[in-house]
């Protein structure tokens, strides 16, 4: 089997998530290569050898500077066609997901997403994953090659094994439509402020709070419990609460002893950031909200009546 792993770069470094997938790919056996795409990234390629890549292909070009998927589809499709890779693996990210799906269409190849494991069985690649909000576990496969897989973030740790890689240039032939979208500006997230990753107790607020000012409820509850306040993407995108407090796929991963969710539906992308919490309590007025599927205590009710009373009771306890 010949496997190619997309090595995403962030701030001039190879992203740990994609190195984790590379470490896993190296254990599948057969040939393992990585591909690094960007502008001024050639120097990063060799470093992937330590994580198991035998060859690292580099596409270094000013037109590839922005982290946009479409020109990367052009590069990887060319590489897969030229080198005949059987597997193309990605560590899940906003960029990698769009890239993998675009590549699937370009190469008429199957893509399985949200993989929590990949293994080789009799020359075939088999993926394991959860589906339907993790309510069922599934083994999946591909018809034909290349097989494209998107591995859920945090699944595999990067393991340095100390090898070295041969670096080769990949051909860069970009389609007109692939370079039509351009990055106009970038607003790097403000990471200062209290860290939600250190807190033992997290009170997380979602869109069910109803308005930015109602985050006060979450703050009061967090204060009386001695915890910190976290949030969902929906409220961060809406400007209700800072990005630095977002938990989930594109936010932070937290493992507090206690997580209390207020008005949070429990979408899979939020869950992946908080499922390691010790005890999960949630308040949601919709009895069908997915968060109840993984709460230790689920309260079906209106947070606006329950939370003030809860704060009062906890204050009275002292």
């Amino acid at each position: 089997m010949k496997t190619l792993v997309f090595l995403e770069t962030v701030d001039g470094k190879l992203h740990a998530g994609s190195l984790g997938v590379l470490s896993r790919a190296a254990k599948l056996g057969g040939e393992v290569a990585g591909v690094v795409i960007g502008s001024g990234v050639a120097g990063l390629a060799e470093g992937a050898g330590a994580y198991g890549a035998q060859v690292v292909y580099v596409a270094d070009d000013a037109r590839l500077e922005s982290a946009l998927p479409q020109p990367r589809v052009d590069v990887i499709a060319g590489l897969v066609t030229a080198q005949g890779f059987d597997n193309v693996l990605f560590a899940q990210s906003v960029l990698a997901s769009d890239l993998a799906a675009g590549l699937a269409a370009r190469l008429e190849a199957g893509v399985n997403w949200d993989l929590a494991g990949v293994e080789e069985r009799g020359g075939e690649l088999i993926g394991t994953r959860a589906a339907l909000g993790d309510s069922v576990y599934v083994e999946v496969a591909w018809k034909g090659t290349p097989r494209i897989g998107i591995v859920r973030s945090g699944t595999y740790a990067a393991e340095e094994t100390g090898g070295s890689a041969r670096v080769e240039n990949a051909a860069i032939e970009l389609q007109d439509f692939s370079t039509a979208a351009v990055l106009v500006s970038q607003d790097r997230a403000e990471q200062s402020g209290p860290s939600i990753e250190e807190a033992d107790i997290i009170v997380a607020g979602g869109r069910g709070l109803g308005a930015a000012e109602h985050f006060k409820l979450a703050e009061e509850l967090a204060e009386v419990l001695g915890g910190a306040v976290a949030s969902t993407r929906a409220v961060v995108d809406a400007g209700w609460y800072p990005y630095a407090t977002q938990v989930g796929q594109t936010g932070k991963t937290i493992t507090p002893k206690l997580y209390i969710g207020l008005g949070i539906s429990g979408a899979i992308q939020h869950k992946v950031g908080m499922q390691g919490s010790g005890t999960i309590v949630s308040i949601n007025k919709d009895g069908h909200a997915p968060i109840f599927d993984y709460s230790d205590l689920g309260i079906v009710g209106d947070l606006h009546t329950i939370v003030p009373k809860l704060v009062e009771l906890l204050r009275a306890r002292g």
Binding site: V10, D11, A67, L68, S93, V94, L95, A180, A181, V182, L183, V184, S185, Q186, D187, R188, A189, R233, V236, D237, Y243, T250
Partner: peptide
């Protein structure tokens, strides 16, 4: 304007898109 793992990006594209 959209969120990624690293903050917010603003991306422009010509129509049709």
């Amino acid at each position: 304007k959209r969120q990624t793992e690293n903050g917010y990006d603003t991306i422009q594209a010509p129509l049709p898109a």
